[in-house]
Design a protein around this nucleic acid. Structure first.
Lengths: 90, 90
DNA sequence: TTGGTATTTAGAAATATTTCTAAATAGATA
DNA sequence: TATCTATTTAGAAATATTTCTAAATACCAA
């Protein structure tokens, strides 16, 4: 994981919306795609960016690929931001 | 402020290092530039991105332009990330 | 005013990103 | 096996980003 990669992943509105959808729980690539007016190939591209940034992980069942939020990386970002702000609890 | 703009600003390593330098306090554009092996024009470009993202604000004194961290936007990002993770205090 | 220092703007080149269409792969079922 | 559905990969086009050099602007000081 690199902060650059993670922040870049979060800079795109489609990817932020995918992550918001995944707050609800695991979804397949197709279910995610149905929320957007884009081709499956484009959604697959965005999912690959989120995966490389470790913001999601994937699991396979039958011929579906499911994606799920990885909250631990979100926490690492919060720590970095908190440190930037100047101290953990102020 | 838009989250997209702010996350994009944070995705670049030079800009993250500038913000880290500014944890110490206010610095002029030239002082910031002296920490990098880049032209002043390039530093000015990065500062403009940080300014548009509201991550820094600037003040002028004599013929210097000083930059300072704006922590309130950092807090807004933390709130967004915290919500993504699912709840404020868990 | 003239010249000096600090910073930004303009324009160009190299590279990266986002999207599409078309083709490829993976796995399920008839 | 043959075929269908779900998803990813490849390649291309449009756009955005990052950096530079050169020029412009801003402000101070002699």
């Amino acid at each position: 994981m690199s902060f650059g990669q993670t922040f870049k992943a979060l800079s795109d509105p489609v990817r932020r919306e995918i992550l918001t959808l995944l707050k609800q729980g695991k979804l397949s690539a197709g279910e995610i795609g149905s929320h957007f007016d884009m081709t499956g190939a484009t959604i697959s591209y965005h999912l690959s960016i989120l995966k490389k940034a470790d913001l999601v992980y994937e699991s396979k069942y039958k011929n579906y690929v499911y994606y799920e939020l990885n909250t631990s990386v979100v926490e690492e970002l919060m720590v970095w931001l908190s440190d930037l702000k100047g101290g953990t609890q102020e």
